[in-house]
Design a protein around this nucleic acid. Structure first.
Lengths: 184, 184
DNA sequence: GGGGGAACGTTTGGTTTCAAACTATTTGCG
DNA sequence: CGCAAATAGTTTGAAACCAAACGTTCCCCC
């Protein structure tokens, strides 16, 4: 299942990273056993790091985030905003706190995020009459429209990820979910 | 393989998130088909989001990062610093740029990071005599010692992640690596 | 051998994020 | 009932990050 990365193009390859073009210094010191036949002195040894789930989680998330943001075109809606809009659409009249819990963001992050979305006319915020502490949130028509377009982009983006995950996508996602869920 | 999350403790559960304790408003509007028998009105529907790899990547990375940072004890060495130290140990005399490429961080992020590590006496930075543009980096004895301790913590942390990934860890990591590698 | 372009590191400016402190409201318990 | 504790949202301060612009140094090629 899923053959090991067969030399993709960009940064990480077999635990080594192509280095500084010419790397003047770094004349290969102490590489912990493992004599290498003929590797240019321009690579970086990731050592134990390359087997840590945490590290790989980060670089993968990073790549996904960056590509989504770069190709999201039109407005500068990054993954965070997109997730918020999605939850808002599926949960009209949700509160800010509940939204924050849903997308794993602190409430102090949610406040300015929503103020921005409101400024753009994508979200309506009204003080709840039932509980005057809270704010009820709904997508505006413009918000629905914007989300529609973003959905296309997001689906496109995730299709690329799906292609990489291959037939084990479901299990792959299940593990990610378990990590978020069970890691205290 | 890997039975689906069987109701873990914290935030995400079966695509729903426990909400605002009492959630005064939000009396369940438009939940897109799917009549639910008896779910409290206090949950959040993640909708399509819960199947996006990108979204799950983020919440998993987030959880991992947070737990690592919270339990790293002693000094405030977060995953970023830890990864830098690891690479530094395995690649003496590496340059800042090469380090940045290895751990997927911009060079403008690396500069202050290393200045901090230097201030703490964990890293030595010396202008290269071979190429006077670059700085050669090495771990100090104190750096080695600090890393030693951090390794224990990191291994501990990753053991938890390993336990969650289960027997398919290798494939799981391979997919993460492919995402970082092939997603342009 | 001289100059254009590339690469190294730094600086600056902006974004996203959390944590903690704070105000306003609501709820629960005694 | 009445007050203590919890909750909603905001503000403030700090950290980590990127992107772009910049000065310095190096290298390739004419």
């Amino acid at each position: 299942m899923v053959p090991p990365s067969k030399g993709g193009r960009n940064p990480l390859r077999n635990g080594r990273v192509e280095g500084a073009g010419r790397a003047p210094t770094a004349t290969r010191a102490t590489t912990r056993g493992k004599s290498r036949a003929r590797t240019l002195a321009t690579e970086v040894d990731l050592g134990a790091l390359q087997n840590f789930i945490g590290f790989n989680l980060r670089i993968a998330q990073d790549a996904s985030f960056r590509v989504f943001a770069r190709t999201s075109g039109q407005k500068s809606i990054r993954p965070g905003r997109f997730a918020a809009l999605m939850v808002l659409r599926d949960n009209p009249n949700i509160t800010q706190s509940a939204l924050g819990r849903a997308i794993a963001r602190d409430k102090s992050t949610i406040t300015p995020l929503l103020q921005d979305l409101q400024r753009r006319g994508l979200v309506k915020r009204t003080r709840s009459t039932v509980d005057r502490r809270s704010v009820t949130l709904t997508l505006t028509a413009a918000g629905e429209r914007a989300l529609q377009e973003l959905m296309i982009h997001a689906r496109d983006h995730d299709r690329k990820l799906d292609a990489i995950a291959g037939p084990v996508k479901a299990e792959f996602v299940a593990i990610l979910r378990k990590i978020a869920d069970e890691l205290v």
